[in-house]
Design a protein around this nucleic acid. Sequence first.
DNA 1: CTGAAAGCGCTTACAG
DNA 2: CTGAAAGCGCTTACAG
Lengths: 336, 336
Amino acid sequence: MKYTIEDVAREAGVSITTVSRVINGNYPVKKETRERVEAAIKKLNFQPNPLARSLINKRTNSIGVVVPGLTNMFFTEVVHGIERIMRSRDYDVYISDSRGRADSEKRRINKFLERYVDGIVLIDPQTENMKNGFIEEVSKKIPVVCINGYHENVRTNFVLSDEEKGTKEALEHLISLGHKNIAFIRGESSYSYDIKENLYKEYMKNIGIEPIVITVQDGNNIDVVENTMRVLIELSSKYQLGKEITAFFACNDLMAVGVLNGCYELNLKVPEDIAIIGFDNIILSQMTNPKLTTVDQNMRLLGERAAQKLLDLIEDKNLYSDTDVIETKLIIRKST
Amino acid sequence: MKYTIEDVAREAGVSITTVSRVINGNYPVKKETRERVEAAIKKLNFQPNPLARSLINKRTNSIGVVVPGLTNMFFTEVVHGIERIMRSRDYDVYISDSRGRADSEKRRINKFLERYVDGIVLIDPQTENMKNGFIEEVSKKIPVVCINGYHENVRTNFVLSDEEKGTKEALEHLISLGHKNIAFIRGESSYSYDIKENLYKEYMKNIGIEPIVITVQDGNNIDVVENTMRVLIELSSKYQLGKEITAFFACNDLMAVGVLNGCYELNLKVPEDIAIIGFDNIILSQMTNPKLTTVDQNMRLLGERAAQKLLDLIEDKNLYSDTDVIETKLIIRKST
DNA sequence: CTGAAAGCGCTTACAG
DNA sequence: CTGAAAGCGCTTACAG
């Protein structure tokens, strides 16, 4: 079995109080005593039971991260950024997948709360949970940082990428290339899609073209690639692709790849017949043929910044609310 | 603040012992009393502190999963299978990324041990940690299931996909198409690559051709796609591609996609000039152009089977060692 | 600088 | 069927 602090105390011939003190280094201990205790710890290869410590400290040195889908590389990149920071500070990061559903997200968060994580990062939290006050409630109990997502009048912390600016640049890029008949592809429910859709409609209004909004299902699971492709093929019976629609703005790269694959099936040339622009700049966007024009969200930085902020919150408990914005960048490649 | 069992006891006018008994349902409690306690629990919205329970039970109702890289969809698919099973049994699953390095994998495992997870799943564990006995040691302390990875004389539990059979079928498929000059692409250190390489060499020996083994770096991170592409381009100055090499066997789909992208850069037609076969059947393999011929590892089932086995182990502590083998399946698409 | 004791929030013999 | 008490492995006032 594992050794306890009592075994160490016996071994070193001191009280458990003293052992505790040398472990935590929070009280003066005579050098000689300390060395004896350290030797005992080493000899027994003693590791304090984090459960027992947490029970008292109310701290677990761990954080929870909730993502809508592990198969969208956008999220794994962001998580990677979070992990980089957290590990350097000796925090454990636990990842949990909500499958993009509000009830599941809620459950995941509650589980983390039960487990006494020290803080939570929510990537692309469900709008429903933002609007109904759930996330604000959670933010009162524990440090929370949200990456992207709905944020009007919600008192919690945000690290946002400037999706508005990114969307504008993307749309203007298409327009500067002479496109007017631009269709818009989005997933079911995410604030990121909503922002983009609003801007898209505005632009279309300005150029006097009827907007075409296409909603595929869950946009954050890799299955969306196939789904989007199917949707595109259906679409080709309604619209004359290459004429009535000459360009697609896709809300993320996964959907953009779906469009690309659909074009291939339909024998449409990209970008000659159809231009495609994605969003995120996941590595997949460089792997297609042609490579995808897209908007870089600087995913790694989003994660790092969120982690840093969460750490700050955990440390001084100034619980909320604050917003950081990170720049996006248009990456022009071969699909436009 | 959160309520404790004491608050519930006071509210219901019973002892904490009784409250504990109705929560756990492990001792008889008079119906009337039970109802009073249940009402109090409901009223206070009481949730028992899992830390305190775990301190006594030595159980946390959670498991750890260590993966070499979250950006290789092979792993996220397997994890998905694990989560499906675990959630239905109300276990939390915590995912941790070793970045494919033995020291990091060790550290991740030790962290899980410290946190008293009830069991651990290792996906594609590092050969080094298998051979030096580390994983066997861990398996003595706690239920462990390994998915794939080195397994000679290591006493722990395995769920393996039949990579040998898969490799043979892939190679035979290429040969049946008339290929002899087959090159082999692998990542740095993984048992999966080793098995495949051995078989590859055997086949090449049989057909009397000098084997060409190309090692790219870390094969389990999505960066490998770019790396492989670069490696292929360099390779084109050493070999006459399409002649001295007419086919590539890649140890996973990520590398296969890298080869595909490289061929595109080099203006080589797939499969006319160069045939490519991958391994795993991650969804990405259907998204390329042409779609990839590959070997399906049934990732979801690998995860589910491993989770089920871990659960069995957790429940009856019959700690090791046992091996399940799951069939692979050749998926012929357009790259061969 | 050091230790005995109380306490974190639970569970489980033990006694009735 | 129910409760008082010990205990899980720690930390931290309190006293010296």
